[in-house]
Design a protein around this nucleic acid. Sequence first.
DNA 1: CGCCCTGTTGACCGCTCTCAAGCGGCGTGG
DNA 2: CCACGCCGCTTGAGAGCGGTCAACAGGGCG
Lengths: 242, 242
Amino acid sequence: MNVAVRPRVQALRQAGEVLDLADVTTSFFPYSEAVIVSYAPGQEVVGEGDPTDNYFLVMRGVFRAVKVTRDGRRQIFAFYMPGDMCGLEPDDTHGLTIEAVNAGTIAALSRQVCRARMGRDPQFNNAVFDNVTRALACAVDHMTMVGRSSAEERLAWFLWMLGGRARGRRPASVELAMQRQDIADYLGLTIETVSRTFTHLKAQGLVALPTTRRVDILRPDLLERLASADRDAPIRSARAVC
Amino acid sequence: MNVAVRPRVQALRQAGEVLDLADVTTSFFPYSEAVIVSYAPGQEVVGEGDPTDNYFLVMRGVFRAVKVTRDGRRQIFAFYMPGDMCGLEPDDTHGLTIEAVNAGTIAALSRQVCRARMGRDPQFNNAVFDNVTRALACAVDHMTMVGRSSAEERLAWFLWMLGGRARGRRPASVELAMQRQDIADYLGLTIETVSRTFTHLKAQGLVALPTTRRVDILRPDLLERLASADRDAPIRSARAVC
DNA sequence: CGCCCTGTTGACCGCTCTCAAGCGGCGTGG
DNA sequence: CCACGCCGCTTGAGAGCGGTCAACAGGGCG
């Protein structure tokens, strides 16, 4: 585990590896004590039940928020990408486990310092508040999918959402940072159903899979139609925390 | 629709109709312009797509946050009780419809004034921030149930959660403010499955239903075990009533 | 080459949905 | 007072989607 302090933030920013939102937020860190930590794939940032000492800001890579029941059932609540904040809990222990999906870097912010800063700095407070309400809005869509949609619709929505999070225009191809089990646990399905549904989408000509981790979107129109069980909703901001 | 202003808050507080949390929050309203509105059962507070002009604080009654797809599928994201804030959206339109489940009263707070006040008043900011992160934490459990549990587990969890929201000790009996369709849409089930599952829980002796709207919890131990999505857990003592 | 890990495919089963009928409380009106 | 209709809820029969269990495929790597 690679631990460093402040200068790392500058280095990452100068390297252009950090997205805008992270950039905006990190501009507030000189006042607190951000600890930058790098994680290997699968490594745990915090576990369920750990004390809520820190809030986290993703700098690089993809992280996942996981809830595991005692008998082993697993639900992924969100994937966090650069610029996303996570670990904001109401109580003094974490209700979720946060893990690195692949190699990534996270900034740990003292919860206490963070809260104090929120009280003093409206701009920072707004950024955090916006992040949390955005996470809530995303959870609404996520839950509607998990609760009310077919496997095909869920996967289409997932791919559509990933495409929407890219910078700039919606890409014709999305990279899957996570493996099938993570997708299944995010969508409330089994790994077999995810696999079969990919096959089905391929057979219909909606997507192609040059590799297991890359999805070419051949028919964005049809994919979107499947994805939007709610077609009236305006397309959410591409930066939504999902 | 009954509209009044500030004095109504005082009246309600003096009448003891408002819970502590609402009370704490309303103490900040003299500085903003709270508009108190009463709603009849089923009445809409805001609809999906409406501009995000206000945040809302439930004063009395139960409200629901609903997402409806074009083809009529319905998912309830949350039930709000006195003291809960809702309508906090990141963007300038609501992503959810908020409706009264039964007769209730809500305080509408100008979003702009509210945000400004959050920037100036750390105590108010903390109250709001706590409310939002709590909503997130609740969504995690909710999603885990919808995504990974059987109908029986979902309903058990729902009843267990309602019991946990009561003031003081966990009650032996809970009142269902909402009808079966709302429970179904909250849990991602159909009304028939909810009904059958109630029957099943009755047959097992876990609960009794003196009326369709009241549930006596006869075996809290077994209900909790079902609710905690832990099929492997040993059966706890029948006398372990919280 | 052979092992391991991830992903795919197949066969079968069961939970929940769908469609449909029946029930019971309550308000209305004769 | 009872008859009637409405609405919310329950119950039943049958079907289908996705879960479960199991075998297989393919790529990476020692």
